[in-house]
Design a protein around this nucleic acid. Structure first.
Lengths: 196, 196
DNA sequence: TTGAACTCCTAACAACCGTTAGTTTTATTA
DNA sequence: TAATAAAACTAACGGTTGTTAGGAGTTCAA
């Protein structure tokens, strides 16, 4: 009999969520079927329901776990007592790191969170907005203290957050620079600009 | 009898493609059904097939028309004899303009082009890569001439292209700055950086 | 005024969807 | 080893999917 092999000491549910992240990343949430997923897990579709409640629960799991991860990071950064430009740099470095090492999840969340149903949809949407607001506050404080250029803070935030999502292309590129170089280049561009 | 009303002098097919762009933008290609689309067009689903060949043809239409638009723009910019930092600025301004005024199409293309089937998928993928390569060449020439900071050009390009896609959030935001201010802020950040 | 070309309609197809029911096999524990 | 729980299986459900067939109403040129 086929048995779900849980590598390491991961729960079978965790294994399913992990495979789902990869599948959703490749095909998108709506275009991924439970039979697709079951095949990758090595099991019949119906068997998945011994471990999860629904397809959407997988998406919820993915979205809210990622959100928690980001929230914990900004919690720590807010607590820090360092120059605000350095806080911004740390936020960027975290986003870049996530995009390099956890990009499947990040991309699924960014692309497919809209397929959550209520009340999760509203819930997630609020969390997202709150997160952006916290970053905006940091940028604004940086401007007030003269550490950051006098720009529209919300615009700066949306650029920061979206710029790093370009790393997706980096993953696919053939001759790619090292992750470290990538990180430094992105920071250089965002903090110092393209022009000389 | 219900009749497809083609406003202005648009073909009925063009009307359908336009409605499809909006629908795909809202729900994603895979989650959009032909019955959804038919309802928005004001017609039964089967009737759509008097004007189009398949659901995917709609996506093809949307993707390749957009690609052509971008290609024409960079054709013109390459022909220009101006400083390379200015060429980069013009590319950015074009992308920003598209994202502000044609964002539904742009977002659909960016998110759903992977749902094209062969040979369109490979075709589109190549066009996309070629387009990025042309921008990279401009950035590299800018670096060589000392107009642009000495950065990894492909990294710069992926940041440029993705940063502007953050404008999506701007559309949804409540108290938004003017489109002109948005454009100037984005250019300021990308060309001069966040830091002071 | 006839006939061809269009474009709409209803009805239906086969395939696939997420999910449930009921059963059998495997793993755990006593 | 026997009893119980966990997790797999097969089969099928009701619904939706993209698309086609065939017919009826409309438009327009001859």
């Amino acid at each position: 009999m086929a048995k779900i092999k849980s590598s390491k000491n991961a729960t079978k549910k965790e294994t399913i969520v992990e495979k789902a992240s990869k599948l959703f990343f490749e095909k998108g949430f709506s275009a991924s079927s439970m039979r697709d997923l079951a095949e990758r897990v090595g099991v019949e579709a119906a068997s998945l329901y011994n471990h999860i409640r629904s397809k959407e629960e997988l998406l919820q799991e993915i979205c809210f776990k990622a959100a928690q991860h980001y929230t914990e990071n900004i919690d720590a950064i807010e607590r820090e007592d360092s120059p605000f430009i350095q806080k911004i740099e740390k936020i960027l470095r975290f986003h870049i790191d996530q995009m390099i090492n956890n990009y499947e999840v990040v991309q699924v969340v960014d692309r497919d969170w809209k397929h959550l149903s209520e009340p999760y949809l509203t819930n997630y949407h609020n969390e997202r907005r709150a997160y952006r607001k916290r970053i905006t506050a940091i940028v604004e404080e940086g401007i007030r203290r003269g550490e950051v250029k006098d720009i529209d803070a919300p615009t700066a935030v949306l650029i920061m957050l979206h710029a790093v999502s370009g790393i997706e292309s980096w993953h696919r590129s053939v001759q790619k620079i090292s992750a470290k170089d990538l990180e430094e280049n992105i920071l250089l561009i965002l903090l110092r600009g393209l022009g000389k």
